[in-house]
C-alpha cells in the first residue's frame, strides 16, 4: 500500500515536472519566433514538409467524409422532405466541427508523428548537441520554424478539408441523389455565417495546430535518446494530441456555441 502511494507520488511528481519542462520549452520556442521573419526561408522549407506533404491525406479524407455526410444527411432529411437543406447541414458540420477536428487528428498522425521522430532522432544522433556546441540554439534554428509552420498549415489544411468535403457532399447529393443544385448552394450561402461559423472554425483549427505542433516538438525534444525512446515518444504524440484535440474541441464548442 505504502509502495502504491509512493509510486503514485513519484509518477505525479514526474508528470508535473514534465509539464513544467513543456512550458519552459514553449516559452523558449515562442521567443524564437520573431527572429524567423528575418530568415523566412527556414519556415518555407518546413511549410513544405509539414503542410504540403499532409495535403494528400487531407484531400482524400475530406472527400470521403463529405460524401458520407451527403449520404447520411440526405437519408435523414428526405424523411422530412427537407433534402434541399443538405447544403446547410453539410457545410455547418464541416466548418464548425469535422473540418477542424478531423483534419487536426489526421495532422497529428501524419505531420505530428513525423516531427517527433525527426527531432527525437536528431537528439539521439547528437545533432542537437552538436548544434549547441557550434553556438547555434537548436530551439531557435530547428524547433521554432517547425512550430510556426505547423501553426500556419493547420488552419489552411482544415479549410481545404472542409472545402473538399462540401464538394464530396455535392457530388453525392446532386449527382447521385438528385438534390437541386441551386437550393444546395443558395441555402448554404444564406445560412453559413462568416463570424459565427467560419471564424469559429478557423479559431479552433489555430488552437489545434498550436497544441499538436507543441506536443509533437516537445515529445521529440524530450525523448529518451534511443530507438525505443523515440518510438515511444512518437506514439505519445499521436495519443496525447488526440486527447488534447477532442478535449479542447468540447471546451471551445461550449464557449463558442454554448449560449445560442
Amino acid at each position: 500500500m505504502i509502495n502504491l502511494i509512493r509510486s503514485l507520488g513519484r509518477w505525479g511528481l514526474s508528470a508535473f515536472e514534465r509539464l513544467g519542462r513543456g512550458h519552459i520549452f514553449l516559452m523558449h520556442m515562442l521567443a524564437g519566433i520573431p527572429g524567423l521573419f528575418l530568415r523566412f526561408s527556414l519556415v518555407v522549407q518546413q511549410l513544405f514538409s509539414v503542410g504540403v506533404l499532409s495535403l494528400l491525406i487531407i484531400l482524400i479524407s475530406g472527400l470521403f467524409v463529405g460524401m458520407v455526410l451527403g449520404l447520411q444527411g440526405y437519408n435523414t432529411l428526405v424523411d422530412f422532405g427537407a433534402e434541399e437543406s443538405l447544403g446547410v447541414l453539410v457545410s455547418l458540420s464541416l466548418v464548425r466541427e469535422l473540418g477542424p477536428v478531423v483534419s487536426a487528428l489526421l495532422f497529428a498522425g501524419r505531420a505530428g508523428s513525423a516531427l517527433t521522430a525527426e527531432i527525437g532522432l536528431m537528439k539521439s544522433t547528437e545533432q542537437l548537441s552538436g548544434m549547441e556546441m557550434m553556438a547555434v540554439d537548436p530551439i531557435r534554428r530547428i524547433i521554432a520554424p517547425r512550430f510556426l509552420a505547423g501553426l500556419i498549415s493547420m488552419p489552411i489544411l482544415a479549410a481545404i478539408f472542409s472545402a473538399v468535403g462540401i464538394i464530396g457532399a455535392f457530388l453525392v447529393g446532386h449527382g447521385l441523389l438528385g438534390v437541386d443544385d441551386g437550393a444546395f448552394w443558395s441555402q448554404m450561402q444564406a445560412k453559413t455565417d462568416f463570424y459565427d461559423d467560419i471564424m469559429n472554425g478557423v479559431i479552433k483549427s489555430v488552437v489545434f495546430g498550436f497544441v499538436v505542433t507543441w506536443i509533437a516538438l516537445f515529445e521529440g525534444y524530450d525523448a529518451t535518446p534511443t530507438s525505443e525512446g523515440v518510438g515511444r515518444a512518437t506514439t505519445r504524440t499521436v495519443v496525447h494530441s488526440a486527447f488534447a484535440i477532442l478535449g479542447l474541441d468540447f471546451v471551445l464548442t461550449a464557449l463558442m456555441f454554448g449560449d445560442e
Binding site: M122, T125, E126, Q127, G130, M134, V136
Partner: peptide
C-alpha cells in the same frame, strides 16, 4: 559567444543528416 571560439569534434561526428557534406561545413 564563448562556444563560437571552441570547436568540438563529436565521437559520432554529429553531422546534420538532412544536408550534404558541403552544407554541413558551411553551416556554422
Amino acid at each position: 559567444e564563448l562556444r563560437k571560439r571552441m570547436g568540438m569534434l563529436f565521437q559520432s561526428g554529429a553531422l546534420l543528416t538532412d544536408i550534404n557534406v558541403y552544407d554541413n561545413v558551411a553551416f556554422p
